[in-house]
């Protein structure tokens, strides 16, 4: 799904250090790719570890709000689709943990940091999925915003991250379309179903816009990420792109987006939209969102409850090895 790479405002105005690392800068400035064992600035490596880990964490936490609806999906078709989607999120998490590991960290260590709260996941998953319409809306808006953010990452300067994102983006387009279709079915159903769809869109619209992060002027990591070729477009550019592509889709759904200031600006060639309440975003990042505690408790419990499966896998492997040895002797 999506990992937003931003934190609440803090003092961190450093530019990317350009001294030394000639090979690195030559590759980055010629739009080449840095590969795992290449020499690279330490803050490039550390910043990528943080971003990729946060992205990976978001994928696996993102399984929760949707997983809650698997047992309540309205048909076998929708249930099969939702299971496939949630399984994809687990896969995305794995691609990304594997990409992070190429930078010299261990997946177990990253999971520890998630469980202890030292590393974050996208704050979008701290909102609840109250009705079935939320599942369609997440696919349409949240995955839609994720795609806008992630497509440029397919060309980011770190090879393993870029390659992981190519796989992720291919799979995300199914996520977005299934969401749109589910929502379209509701918005063209009974008046109650349409109202349910509208309610979900009303609740998810602003959090989806916040997924692009703070305005460019307040974005803490942007400048360095741009210089390193990790980030290709600014938060505000990507947000505008998302709004422009989403408004006509909302019209096709017959649903309204909850913003009285949303209108086409002929002069700019873009949609204008209202002011985003970022104080809410930063509160959610700090841990005060509606579901922060629930998501973390569920994640830790899932990890602990899975201990027996990991132990069983090891026992099975040991047994198979012993058995193999015995057959080899005989």
């Amino acid at each position: 799904m999506y990992g937003n790479d931003f934190t609440a405002p803090q003092a961190d105005g450093q530019d990317a250090v350009r001294e030394g690392h000639e090979d690195f800068w030559r590759v980055v400035e010629s739009d080449g790719r840095i590969e795992p064992r290449d020499e690279m600035p330490e803050d490039y490596r550390a910043s990528l570890v943080r971003q990729i880990a946060q992205h990976a964490h978001s994928e696996i936490i993102g399984m929760q709000p949707e997983g809650e609806w698997i047992s309540r999906a309205p048909s076998l078709r929708r249930k099969a689709i939702l299971m496939a989607k949630v399984q994809d999120e687990a896969g995305h998490g794995l691609y990304l943990y594997a990409a992070a590991e190429t930078l010299g960290v261990d997946r177990a260590e990253l999971l520890d940091k998630l469980h202890s709260g030292k590393q974050k996941y996208s704050s979008i998953f701290n909102y609840p999925t109250l009705t079935w319409a939320d599942i369609g809306t997440i696919g349409w808006l949240v995955d839609g915003a994720a795609i806008v953010n992630q497509v440029p990452l397919c060309r980011c300067s770190y090879g393993p991250y870029a390659r992981a994102m190519i796989r992720v983006c291919k799979e995300e387009s199914f996520h977005q379309r299934q969401g749109f279709e589910a929502l379209y079915t509701l918005s063209h159903g009974t008046p109650e179903q349409k109202a349910m769809a509208q309610d979900a869109v009303d609740r998810w619209w602003w959090p989806s816009l916040m997924m692009f992060g703070p305005h460019d002027a307040e974005s803490t990591h942007s400048e360095k990420s741009m210089a390193w070729g990790v980030k290709r477009f600014s938060n505000d550019e990507l947000r505008q792109r998302f709004v422009d592509m989403t408004v006509p889709q909302a019209e096709a759904l017959g649903l309204t987006l909850p913003d009285p200031d949303l209108r086409w600006n002929e002069e700019r060639g873009h949609y204008d939209f209202g002011e985003i309440d970022f104080t809410e975003l930063f509160e959610v990042i700090k841990g005060n969102g509606p579901c922060n505690q629930q998501r973390m408790a569920r994640r830790r419990a899932a990890h602990e409850d899975g201990t027996w499966a990991r132990e069983a896998a090891v026992a099975y492997a040991e047994k198979a090895q012993q058995h193999g040895r015995r057959t080899a002797v005989a």
């Binding site: 691609y95 997946r107 896998a313 198979a320």
Partner: peptide, 18 residues
């Protein structure tokens, strides 16, 4: 890509799923 597994057989099965 890559993955962790207790042995090659399990790695193969997990690679199939991932």
């Amino acid at each position: 890509g890559s993955l962790h597994a207790p042995d090659a057989q399990m790695a193969l099965r997990n690679a199939r799923d991932v």
